[in-house]
Design a binder for these strands. Structure first.
Lengths: 144, 144
DNA sequence: ATAAAGTCTACTAAATCCGTATACATTATA
DNA sequence: TATAATGTATACGGATTTAGTAGACTTTAT
């Protein structure tokens, strides 16, 4: 299951993407427009900032803005920051690999093979979907 | 993430599939051969039984056996019994649909569209993979 | 100086997951 | 028919994770 943290992160990036190249947007605005608890959103934006996706400005008139073009942010990148693994099995995760405790023969596990395929298919879709795509889609602009 | 319950369930079906059309296999044997805590496995097998996949026989010499041909059991069926949703978003689940609480415009949500694609890709792979496939794969028999 | 913002860390409530415990029912067989 | 070997059913509990809250701090515009 996608965590709320990840969902909120993506929605925040969509909101920020709609203000790309404009004045910083403050947290309260995003929290209200996207229906996200403000204090929770603060943490998420902080992580996205520390990961290099956002610029922040403190003080009156401050807020967040996107450092990258929405076209250059895909959902795999976002999920890796906010949500951890994309794979549904630890033994198949590229960035968070862990052996399954109960496993007796990892090299020869049919479940593993299957969920590697699932991971690959998921990765393909998510890596090909950018924040810009989501913004366009929500505006009703069909993808070329 | 795939729950252990689901992983154990699949592994148990693999073990039972290897004894298809033979004498019932008892829980302790499966627990040991697949490295699954016995009491936990009992619960899982019970659910699979109640879902109509297994036959059980009590008493000495009793145990479980598969009611269906391993070729006719795919991973979607198993996951629906043991693990609940396959979709990564409740609003995109076919069998466990729930609106996302924070959502303001479900019809027009780019995240939803994307994860519907992910669900479809996942569903395709899992529905095309059967217990028989896994058994063959683990024996090193290539799929035609 | 003040108010409006972001920063950082710690805390908590609730849910879920994994596994255990216990009492019971059924069956084979000595 | 007594006993041991099995499955059935339900309740319980510890650990972890998730979602969210609190509060004290820093920076900046005016």
């Amino acid at each position: 299951m996608l965590s709320k943290k990840t969902k909120y992160g993506i929605r925040a990036l969509i909101a920020l993407g709609e203000h790309y190249d404009k004045e910083p947007v403050n947290i309260s605005f995003i929290a209200e427009s996207e229906n996200i608890p403000k204090k929770f959103l603060e943490q998420i934006l902080l992580e996205l900032r520390n990961a290099g996706f956002l610029y922040s400005k403190k003080g009156a008139g401050g807020g967040y803005s996107l450092l990258k073009n929405p076209k250059d942010i895909n959902l795999v990148q976002v999920m890796r920051i906010t949500g951890g693994p994309i794979a549904q099995l630890p033994c198949v995760s590229l960035n968070f690999y862990q052996r399954c405790e109960e496993c007796r023969d990892e090299e020869n596990c049919g479940i593993r093979d299957t969920f590697r395929d699932v991971r690959d298919a998921t990765l393909k879709i998510l890596s090909e979907t950018t924040i810009a795509d989501l913004i366009a889609k929500e505006k009703g602009i069909p993808k070329e």
